[in-house]
Structure formats: structure tokens, C-alpha cells
């Protein structure tokens, strides 16, 4: 039992350093990648699921899948009166409506009196507003927060998902996506 152990192959000795190098490259990339913390819907490109929501407010009818298949692209806005950015995007939605875009709303976990106050304060650009107290439609289309806006084409297929509020600079993008959805 002497100590003249044979030298191990040099490759194995450098393995830890190589692994560390790989780790280093990975985390450097991770540190400097653009911040992407949103959960994107995997449902873009698929037809809307079947749903039929009751009206969330007295002024507008409820919302069902059949009513959204009109042969013309439209927007589906997932929002709530208790959501601060939803108020911030109201002017943009109004601007889109004035350009002739039809917008349907899904009110998430909302009470009628809160919703009425919200629509009174910030305007009501919606053609229909469905009441989604159990987040059924929200989960059904893969939305993970409010507000989110989906472009639905004439056949009821989801073509685009906009995460977070629509800012003034996003309006052109939304219009382009609606245009693309026409073809």
C-alpha cells in the first residue's frame, strides 16, 4: 500500500473548472438579459374557449364566445375596477374605440357598484362587459393578471396578447396587430 497512486487523467481534473465556467456564463447572461418577468399566454394562436358571461353592469350586455366571432377583428380587454393601471389605460382604450375598434371587456372579480363608479370616472369604451368572478375566462385564455388585452380575429382566434396597460405609444402597435388579424 504505497503512495505511488497513478496520476488521474488531466481531463477529469479540469472538469470542475469547466462546469464553473458554464455556470459563470449562464448567470452573466441571466444578470444582463432583458427583464422578462411576465407570464406570457401560451394560448395565442388558438381559438377562444367556450364561455358565456353574464353582464357585469346594467349599461352593457354580457359576453359570450359566439358574440365575439363577428368576422371582424376586435379587442378583448381583461380589467378590473380595483386595478390601478386599468384606469391609466382608459384613455388609450377610448382612443382605440374612436378609431372604430370594437372592444369587449372582462371584469375580473368586480362588484357592480365599484365597476359603475370606475366606468363613470374613466369612461366606458366597451361594447360588452362580461362578469368573471371566478377568473374562469381569465384562466381560460391564459391571462395571469390585469390589465391584459387580446386581439381576437374574425374567426374568434386569439392573435396577440398585450401584457400590462396600453400606454399611448402602444396604440399604434395594437392597431397594427388588429390590421394583421384581418388578413
Amino acid at each position: 500500500m504505497s503512495e505511488d497512486t497513478p496520476k488521474r487523467s488531466s481531463l477529469a481534473i479540469w472538469l470542475p473548472l469547466a462546469l464553473f465556467g458554464a455556470f459563470f456564463v449562464l448567470v452573466i447572461w441571466g444578470l444582463y438579459r432583458p427583464a422578462d418577468r411576465e407570464v406570457v399566454s401560451a394560448f395565442v394562436g388558438k381559438p377562444l374557449p367556450q364561455f358565456n358571461l353574464p353582464a357585469a353592469t346594467a349599461e352593457r350586455p354580457g359576453l359570450s364566445t359566439a358574440e365575439m366571432i363577428t368576422g371582424k377583428p376586435r379587442l378583448l380587454n381583461v380589467f378590473a375596477s380595483w386595478c390601478v393601471p386599468c384606469a391609466a389605460e382608459a384613455p388609450q382604450l377610448e382612443a382605440l374605440r374612436q378609431r372604430g375598434v370594437e372592444i369587449d371587456g372582462v371584469a375580473i372579480r368586480d362588484r357592480r357598484e365599484d365597476l359603475d363608479r370606475f366606468l363613470g370616472n374613466y369612461g366606458n369604451p366597451f361594447a360588452r362587459i362580461g362578469k368573471d368572478d371566478l377568473s374562469e375566462v381569465q384562466v381560460g385564455i391564459g391571462s395571469s393578471g390585469v390589465p391584459e388585452t387580446f386581439v381576437i380575429d374574425g374567426k374568434g382566434v386569439i392573435r396577440y396578447q398585450h401584457l400590462g396597460e396600453i400606454r399611448p405609444e402602444d396604440v399604434a402597435l395594437i392597431l397594427r396587430k388588429l390590421q394583421e388579424a384581418q388578413s
Binding site: V139, G140, I141
Partner: peptide, 10 residues
């Protein structure tokens, strides 16, 4: 069903 909507992340 959920993965179809949110991807493997869920």
C-alpha cells in the same frame, strides 16, 4: 389544460 394556457411554467 393549464399548460396549454400558461406553458410549462405553471
Amino acid at each position: 389544460w393549464l399548460i396549454e394556457r400558461y406553458g410549462d411554467y405553471v
